[in-house]
Design a protein around this nucleic acid. Structure first.
Lengths: 243, 243
DNA sequence: TCAAAAACGAGAGCAGTGCTCTTGCTTTTG
DNA sequence: CAAAAGCAAGAGCACTGCTCTCGTTTTTGA
């Protein structure tokens, strides 16, 4: 399976990685719109047509970068959730604290990789239909949040929020599909909170907060805490602990 | 001021409008990235270089479209707020209802004009620095929400939310700058709610809800109501009225 | 083992892009 | 009514994504 059969195959995965690395570099420097296949090839000392042996089109290269970005931000979220697991639960609202920690980790990844963030959470490229490869990695962050709520629910520490009747069937479907063990009402609230969290990050990253908000980290923290509360995780006091 | 001096000047504003219209048409059809100056010129029966008499660069054309889009969505929000003003205030939480009405109007504009929405609330184009012309129109939607909260505050119907200490000075600055008459704590909550509202819309429009959420309008409505509550507008029952 | 097949890099070339510059013509202005 | 400014057209530059062909190298299967 993972055995490399020959020198050619080995070279192929190396070149593929080199192309993605250089592409990522250009992405970080100039943004997705200015990512040029020819420039990548030039920088790698190959002719542009050779690059098509590895990626059949520019869109496919972008898709690969999208998958990597989703994986990266997903890994960051998972790591933040796991790290918190190790710490002693001295706080009064451990689940909410954990939620906030993950949210902050996601935000910080976005601040560190704005163009990659824009690639996955900004406007989709024109006519671009997300291939199936992306849906798995794309859901990792969401699953982390679901897991936090599930843990709270299992510990009987979840205050199940109210649920609008029109949302019930949809919430139950979502629960069965990817959030087994979480009350449907919490799943519905969670999905909304998920979108709202990224709304905060996107506004900050895309410049909507310019000349408006200065204290962005505290604002985000406060809002993330409020969102945690909205899905049923017990509230934390406004004064943040451990900083 | 608004008098048209000669035939040439008249022609100029007509051609400028025609260019913007055709550009907007292509934007709606294919998205910002595929908007081509040459294609616009071609469609208008002129040569591409002639277009540079009206817009010095592609970015300037885009900026004009951005300003128009901000104005359009701002006008929609203002109209929704005003329309609501006329109606009898039978509901138990008129300010929250009004907030939700404006939020829904904004969302519907986005659904009707996805590419224009992406232009203003999606990832900024590479290296694009928003010119000063855009900041005025860009703030119209936000000002509508501020006005709703201000009205509630003046009527003594605002439950001022708690405010994290680190946010106080920033909140006071924002209050003085563009939200006179609103308690600073509400301003801080409002800015966060503003970003979160657009997070919900963006996730829906940019495909993040695909294969996840089906009942998007109810979910949005519920979240918008929760956000109204978070800035201090009295809660509405989960069962929506008047539908 | 050794020929057929597949993978590969290089180059030329096509259609398209944003943008500049020059050349005539028309409208406006002093 | 001449000078100045505004305008459309065309040629051209440097760039893009992508295709096709042509030798060369590596892998494969009988």
């Amino acid at each position: 399976m993972s055995t490399i059969r020959g020198a050619r195959e080995r070279a192929r995965i190396e070149v593929t990685a080199a192309i993605k690395d250089e592409a990522r570099k250009q992405l970080a420097a100039e943004g997705a719109a200015k990512l040029s296949l020819r420039a990548v090839a030039r920088e790698l000392g190959m002719v542009s047509s050779a690059l098509y042996r590895y990626f059949p089109s520019r869109d496919d290269l972008l898709t690969a970068l999208i998958v990597d970005a989703f994986d990266a931000i997903g890994a960051v979220a998972e790591r933040a959730a796991k790290e918190w697991e190790g710490k002693e639960r001295e706080g009064k609202a451990p689940h909410a604290e954990r939620w906030i920690a993950v949210a902050c980790a996601v935000r910080e990844w976005g601040l560190a990789h704005p163009h990659e963030y824009a690639l996955i959470y900004g406007s989709p490229v024109p006519g671009y239909i997300a291939p199936m490869d992306t849906v798995g990695p794309a859901s990792r962050v969401g699953l982390v949040f679901i897991d936090i709520v599930r843990t709270a629910s299992r510990a009987e520490e979840l205050a199940v929020p109210p649920l609008a009747p029109e949302l019930r069937s949809d919430a139950e479907r979502m629960t069965a599909e990817f959030a087994e063990g979480v009350p449907p009402a919490a799943v519905a609230a969670l999905v909304a909170a998920w979108a709202q969290l990224f709304g905060l990050i996107s506004f900050e990253l895309f410049g909507q907060f310019n000349r408006v908000v200065e204290a962005r980290e505290p604002l985000f923290r406060q809002a993330a805490g409020e969102l945690a509360r909205s899905v049923g995780l017990r509230a934390v006091e406004v004064e943040p602990h451990q900083r």
